[in-house]
Design a binder for these strands. Structure first.
Length: 630
RNA sequence: GCCCGCUUGGUGGAAUGGUAGACACAACAGACUUAAAAUCUGUCGAUCGAAAGGUCGUGCCAGUUCGAGUCUGGCAGCGGGCACCA
């Protein structure tokens, strides 16, 4: 996505000399190869050259005013007509002594990209094509594409009608054209970026003050270094619209650092993106006297994993990268990129509701009755809109404080983790929160119900022998631990929660009947409490205490899955005939092919499908699948 | 127009190329209860069948493979971002 925002493009700067006088117009193009197809010059109405020219041409002033009046909404831009003003001036073609090109002021040429001037090549650019049709300018094809390609043809091809470029391919022609420009001293290769300006000031209180003082005598004066940082005043009032800093006399009025006469502070503050563009460096050295400690920052940086919403994926990430590179260029550190990995998390969404008058309703003002939604206050029907990003303006928000109060923070946390993978949008529902609430209660009952027996068991002392059921529970514990650890490390939080549920469901069904089985259950429950703690920190601590331990779970090491308990003795093998599932068969996962083949071919359902036909191939993947190919 | 992301049951979503639908939500049926809540049990892709079982099924069309939700090529739809960027 950043490619789009940074918008690097390689091309050339070319000088076009005016026919009269000494001046030249400089243009930027990514298609210097199409130079011989040029039929006009387009200048932005905002270009200084045009402003100058307009002083003596009233009609041009009118045209510029029209262009500026044009709307900037998407619809208006989409439908805007190409318009030009013929200046009656000409430039000479850089390579062709006797070719002159008319100069138009054109409404579609942007001042803030390139040089604000373009050469128009109607045969190979849609905008120039439309423009040329309107003002009957020549349309000379100079790139031969596929024969069926209509004009304007914007793709690559072989150059024609182009003198020394004839016969070259687009890429090669670009290079050769630039070589000629350089040789003639009328141009050069150039790289431009369309990264938009970042207006870093905001007319609001919440932000870092901009350390500038405006003095009526000395102009704009920076706050001297020994007076930094400028700190926001605490005694501000928000009872009036606008920026409270503007209305704060004692903070705003200061003496000018230069002439010491009364002056005013800058009351705009920095965009919060300014601080978030380098805070990670400060985090590495919170006690440093300077903004950050180079050595410590270089030790800890870059950030291993950055998590943010979609707006962070473009703006914040872009700015952070800029700051990081700028700090490097200024010698503050040797780092060129701030983050190793980015996880772009989804947004929290909720259904939207409207009453019969079309007004938005909060979720708590609405109730589902017999499959239909009605307004609680008067039982009138409610229109349910699609689920959208939670937004104050659409009322589809759920106050976090209320959820925490009713269900506890762990319930909310569990729901958010379990419902969908973090990178996708998340649908907030009452049913979902209820489901998480039920699970927490279930977990609690599971541990509490076994508490009396379990408290008599010593952890770690593995009894011998273990019953088959004890072995089964022990293996399940380690298998769960293994997968849960992996899921968390890979950000598969919804699967992590699913594993927890599978595990606790199995433990619920398990009724120990032997000391070794109680031992296994005790191990399992301890493990369960440890591994729920990232998702359910409060519940985990409470259960940890109930199990008779001192605080805190969070200080316990993460348990380790032992490889020896991950080995399965028996596994259900999927059996296919001609690639189609025909059944399953339980066997050791370590059985060799020859033995397995004999077993499988003897199975009744396999025989039924084979019916004595010749077996062309027998595929056997240990512990996974067998496929009999006829 | 360009750039991202997405497309699997009624819903959210699982599935290192190897039994599609794990785990949930909703729904339905049942147990417990005077009743309700809570809890527990069962059913839950479509279709044919009394059953056993069969056939189809991961947006669409091809391809690779013993085997494709997963890989390759092409297409469509939905959502988001940017947009006259020369």
């Amino acid at each position: 996505m950043q490619v789009n925002w940074i918008g690097r493009s390689e091309g050339a700067l070319i000088q076009f000399p005016l026919l009269e006088g000494e001046d030249t117009l400089e243009i930027f193009t990514t298609r210097p190869d199409t130079i011989f197809g040029a039929s006009f010059i387009g200048i932005s109405p905002d270009h200084p050259f045009v402003e100058n020219l307009a002083k003596t041409i009233p009609a041009l002033q009118t045209f510029i005013a029209e262009c500026r009046a044009m709307g900037t909404s998407q619809k208006e831009l989409d439908t805007a007509e190409k318009k030009g003003f013929n200046t009656s001036l000409f430039v000479r073609h850089p390579f062709l002594e006797d070719v002159k090109l008319p100069i138009y002021v054109a409404n579609f040429v942007l001042m803030d990209y390139g040089t604000g001037i373009v050469f128009g090549c109607p045969a190979h650019d849609l905008r120039d094509y439309e423009f040329a049709l309107k003002y009957t300018l020549p349309i000379l094809p100079v790139v031969k594409g596929p024969s069926e390609a209509p004009l304007p043809y914007e793709g690559e091809g072989i150059l024609i009608n182009s003198h020394f470029l004839n016969g070259l391919e687009t890429q090669e022609a670009k290079k050769v054209a630039i070589q000629h420009l350089v040789k003639e001293k009328i141009g050069a290769s150039e790289i431009t970026y369309k990264l938009r300006d970042w207006g870093v000031s905001r007319q609001r209180y919440w932000g870092c003050p901009i350390p500038i003082i405006h003095c009526s005598h000395c102009g704009i004066v920076p706050v001297p270094e020994d007076q930094l940082p400028v700190v926001l005043p605490q005694d501000v009032a928000f009872d009036q619209p606008g920026n409270p800093l503007d209305l704060h006399p004692t903070w705003k009025i200061v003496d000018c650092p230069q002439c010491h006469k009364p002056a005013e502070r800058e009351t705009d503050t920095f965009d919060t993106f300014i601080e978030s563009s380098w805070y990670f460096a400060r985090f590495c050295s919170p006690h440093a006297l300077q903004p950050f400690d180079k050595e410590k920052a270089e030790f800890w940086m870059p950030v291993d994993q950055y998590i943010g919403g979609i707006e962070h994926a473009i703006l914040h990430l872009l700015y952070s990268r800029f700051f990081t590179k700028a700090l490097k260029a200024c010698g503050y550190w040797a780092l060129s990129e701030p983050f190793k990995n980015l996880l772009t998390q989804g947004m929290v969404c909720h259904e939207t509701y409207r009453d019969q008058t079309g007004s938005w309703l909060y979720p708590h003002e609405v109730e589902k009755q017999e499959g239909r939604f009605v307004k609680l206050s008067d039982n009138t029907p409610v229109t349910v809109g699609r689920s959208e990003k939670m937004s104050k303006s659409k009322f589809n928000v759920v106050p976090a404080a209320k959820i925490v109060e009713e269900y506890g923070a762990d319930t909310a946390r569990l729901f958010m983790l379990s419902d969908s993978p973090p990178e996708r949008d998340f649908e907030w529902t009452e049913a979902g929160i209820e489901g998480s609430w039920r699970y927490i209660n279930k977990l609690w009952r599971l541990v509490m119900s076994h508490l009396p027996e379990i408290k008599t068991i010593k952890r770690g002392e593995r009894p011998s022998p273990l019953t088959p059921n004890a072995i089964r529970i022990q293996k399940l514990t380690h298998k769960t631990l293994f997968h849960v650890t992996q899921d968390i490390e890979r950000f598969h939080y919804n699967r992590y929660i699913a594993r927890l549920r599978e595990f606790s469901n199995s433990l619920e069904e398990f009724l120990p009947s032997d000391p070794s089985e109680w031992w296994a259950l005790n191990e399992a429950l301890h493990t369960l409490v440890l591994i729920i703690s990232p998702a359910l920190p409060h519940v985990a601590e409470a259960l940890w205490a109930e199990l008779g331990h001192s605080p805190f779970v969070i200080n316990q090491p993460w348990p380790k899955a032992e490889a020896e308990y991950l080995i399965e003795d028996k596994v259900t093998l999927a059996i296919q005939v001609n690639g189609k599932m025909r059944g399953a068969f339980e066997m050791s996962p370590r059985l060799e092919e020859e033995e397995a083949r004999a077993l499988i071919l003897d199975l009744p359902f396999v025989k039924a499908h084979v019916q004595g036909k010749v077996i062309k191939k027998f595929i056997y993947i240990q512990g996974k699948i067998a496929n009999v190919v006829l």
